[in-house]
């Protein structure tokens, strides 16, 4: 009996602490937004973070995009040719990429590649008193360290998602047209007929922008509030990847329902 009560108490405690952490993250987000102008005025701060977050992620994003596109082409062809409509492969691949896989997989890879690095970097700066030292030098660390990294994530994400989707379409083109031998024209024409700029591409961009905010915030938040020990920083890095991935997948569901609810009746 008492063990049941203990369990419920434990549940309550963890819900409360999760809520408290969410509130802390919200306040942190507001604090970032207050000084988000700083990296825009001092552009070199943003450029540096764009380099480490964005440029350094290009390779993994483009290569992954290619492979995802190629696999989609093989699997899609296998199913579509049963119905004799293998020319629609282009639409299938493009819609999958632009609407879903582009933004989502990019966000997941970005969380693992750049988000974890940002958390580790900020966590180490916290552990070695660099952030405290900056604060004592009357330089706001949120403006100088946190907001450029956050903004770089928001800016990089849609650009990387576009690269992912483009690379995926190209990969599907290689496999579908060059390897399997689907008609070149059908591939593109079906694609262009089936993919709408505003509905599909712009919505995909909005998704990746939202993911950029989520992953960026989680990465800087986990780093800033990481316990100042080696163990604390490493577990914060893991938490960034796990929390970001869950947040991206959940947000994706919400956004998909909101964006495409009227589409299929």
């Amino acid at each position: 009996m008492s063990s049941v009560i203990e369990m419920i108490e434990g549940l309550g405690r963890s819900v409360l602490s999760a809520l408290a952490r969410l509130g802390l993250a919200g306040r942190f987000f507001l604090a970032i937004m207050m000084v988000i102008g700083v990296p825009l005025r001092r552009f070199s701060l943003l450029v540096r973070e764009l380099y480490f977050s964005g440029v350094r992620s290009i390779l993994i994003i483009v290569v992954s995009g290619m492979f995802v596109g190629m696999v989609l082409a093989i699997q899609g062809y296998e199913v579509l040719q049963r119905f004799g409509s293998s020319e629609t492969l282009g639409v299938l691949v493009a819609l999958s990429l632009v609407r879903e896989l582009g933004p989502v997989v990019t966000a997941l890879l970005f969380a693992g590649r750049a988000g974890s690095a940002v958390t580790a970097e900020i966590g180490l700066m916290q552990a070695t008193d660099q952030i405290a030292a900056m604060d004592m030098m009357a330089v706001n660390p949120i403006a100088r360290i946190i907001s450029p990294r956050f903004l770089a994530s928001v800016v990089s994400m849609p650009l990387l998602a576009c690269m992912f989707s483009a690379a995926g379409v190209f990969g599907a083109y290689l496999v579908g047209v060059k390897l399997i031998g689907i008609d070149d024209g059908s591939f593109w024409s079906q694609m262009q007929a089936g993919v709408d700029f505003r509905l599909d591409i712009v919505n995909g961009l909005i998704k990746s922008l939202v993911f950029g905010v989520a992953v960026g915030l989680i990465a800087v938040f986990e780093g800033y509030y990481a316990p100042p020990t080696a163990e604390g920083v490493s577990s914060a890095t893991t938490r960034t990847v796990v929390t970001s991935s869950l947040a991206v997948l959940m947000l994706d569901f919400v956004l998909t329902v909101w964006m495409f609810r009227g589409l299929n009746g």
């Binding site: 764009l50 380099y51 964005g54 440029v55 290009i58 493009a94 632009v98 990089s156 849609p158 650009l159 990387l160 576009c162 690269m163 989707s165 483009a166 690379a167 379409v169 593109w188 694609m191 262009q192 007929a193 993919v195 709408d196 700029f197 599909d200 591409i201 961009l205």
Partner: peptide
Amino acid sequence: LFVAAGLLALVFLAMKVGN
């Protein structure tokens, strides 16, 4: 180059993939 490549990918998606 990164930003240019990203925008280029977007243009590709808009023109070649989209309508």
